[in-house]
Design a protein around this nucleic acid. Structure first.
Lengths: 107, 107
DNA sequence: TTACAATATCAAGATATGTTGATTTATGGA
DNA sequence: TCCATAAATCAACATATCTTGATATTGTAA
């Protein structure tokens, strides 16, 4: 029950659904890319990324001071279905801004 | 997004997961059966049943003053997967008390 | 070591959700 | 019509969650 509710409550927020969808569509992203692309302040983003990670949807890989988040694989059946459902929601994704690659990360 | 979040938020409560699991296991139940079996006060149960119904998991059929709730069919793919996930959670279901059938419904 | 950049965490306030007891609505029978 | 029962809704309070700005942590380079 706990694990199930943790997954479900992680999904129960529009911001996190958007983050999941965005990373699903664009692949691995670092926090500052997400900040730039999704126009969210850092503490807010960091909080939601942690929730998604703790719920088993995301993994983090640290490279120096950067933290790269990506969809965790393999996902179990329910999380896979949830992601699939999110994949076909009609929501407009902002374009990816790769601030980390062009050295524009000054947040 | 709205529909998805409505489904997800309906699942995001231990009480509602138990109710879904109970009705899934026992079939159509009236509110007073659920009250007796799950030992919940009427207003609490009624609230959660409404949320599950509005989220598309349950349907109601009224017979006189009784309201019978059952799993809505057909369920879409995501709701079906969610229900399947709930079906295999290790939670102990209380036995069904069919108070409505033996005329013991005096709540 | 010191400074700085990227990320994480904390504290406070705002909003949403769950619980309970009281009230209301709806249905059927006297 | 009037009453009783089942169910739904309301109001008040408690608890949880989200947002923001401030602070702490971690890694890199001078």
């Amino acid at each position: 029950m706990e694990v199930f509710l943790k997954s479900v409550s992680a999904l129960n927020d529009e911001t996190r659904v958007l983050i999941l969808r965005f990373i699903d569509a664009n692949g691995e992203c670092c926090v500052c890319d997400l900040q730039a692309s999704l126009e969210m302040i850092q503490s807010r983003l960091s909080r939601h990324l942690k929730i998604l990670k703790d719920a088993g949807f995301l993994r983090v890989e640290r490279k120096g001071t950067w933290a790269y988040y990506s969809i965790r694989t393999p996902l179990d059946r329910f999380r896979t279905e949830a992601l699939e459902e999110i994949r076909y929601l009609s929501l407009e994704l902002p374009p990816l801004k790769k601030s980390s690659e062009i050295g524009a990360c000054k947040i």
